[in-house]
């Protein structure tokens, strides 16, 4: 019944990309947090998080993304989101975070900025 949750990691034009698939909630958000931490510990200051295959996102997931944003910005970089789904867009809009994160329609746009 539950959707598969996966995070694929790759580099696009030397920028690390975390491509997330499935539902990000209180049970899966810790894995995203750990992967973001791993990217930062590898020395990268900017990361792209591709949420285009994410079907559900709650306040726990938003908390992880906001913490990641602070971490990468404090290192002089950024955390960029790729968002295409209506559900994810709506959550970012109603929490006001659409004004906080740099949001792109595709990974190629996010890495070339």
């Amino acid at each position: 019944m539950e959707e598969v949750f996966e995070i694929a990691e790759y580099s696009d034009d030397s920028t690390p990309v975390l491509s997330v698939r499935g539902e990000i909630d209180v049970s899966t958000a810790p894995e995203l947090r750990d992967r973001l931490l791993g990217v930062a510990q590898d020395g990268y200051s900017t990361v792209v998080v591709d949420l285009s295959e994410v079907t559900f996102l709650d306040s726990t997931a938003l908390g992880v993304l906001v913490s990641g944003l602070k971490r990468f910005r404090s290192a002089g970089g950024d955390l960029r989101l790729v968002v295409t789904g209506r559900n994810v867009t709506k959550v970012l809009e109603i929490t006001g975070l659409v004004e906080v994160f740099p949001i792109f329609d595709s990974v190629s746009e996010a890495v070339s900025t």
Partner: peptide
């Protein structure tokens, strides 16, 4: 922070 987000949602 998470509580605030929950409340807004």
């Amino acid at each position: 922070s998470v509580s605030d987000l929950s409340e807004r949602i």
